[in-house]
């Protein structure tokens, strides 16, 4: 007799024994394992994709708005070039004014 079981329980345990033979087919077992694994892979892929795409999207947005924090030197050089052009235009304007005979 199985420990912790009375006579009636023992009889029922024997009577129910054929139900213990109910197992899903190997085909079902394999298909389900595949599905479980795939769902894990899919979830991993989605998070990986999101992890890569979100920083890329933020970077593209910043560059698109003209905000280039990765290369400030280029920005300063461009400003310097622009200011020297303005300076030359002012000198030219000044010399033109000198030539005007009032």
């Amino acid at each position: 007799m199985i420990k912790d079981r009375g006579m009636d329980e023992e009889k029922f345990t024997q009577l129910f024994a054929p139900f213990r033979a109910i197992t899903p087919s190997q085909e079902t077992l394999g298909r389900v394992l595949e599905t479980v694994t795939i769902s894990r892979v899919r979830r991993f892929s989605i998070w990986t994709f999101a992890g890569i795409m979100v920083p890329v999207a933020v970077f593209v947005l910043l560059v698109w708005q003209g905000n280039r924090p990765l290369n400030p030197t280029r920005e300063i050089l461009a400003m310097e070039e622009e200011s020297s052009q303005i300076e030359q235009e002012l000198i030219l304007l000044d010399s033109n004014l000198d030539n005007i005979d009032i």
């Binding site: 139900f19 213990r20 109910i22 197992t23 899903p24 077992l29 394992l33 479980v36």
Partner: peptide, 10 residues
């Protein structure tokens, strides 16, 4: 999974 699928399924 192989060990416990059957009891959970039943």
């Amino acid at each position: 999974y192989r060990e416990y699928f059957a009891p959970i399924y039943r």
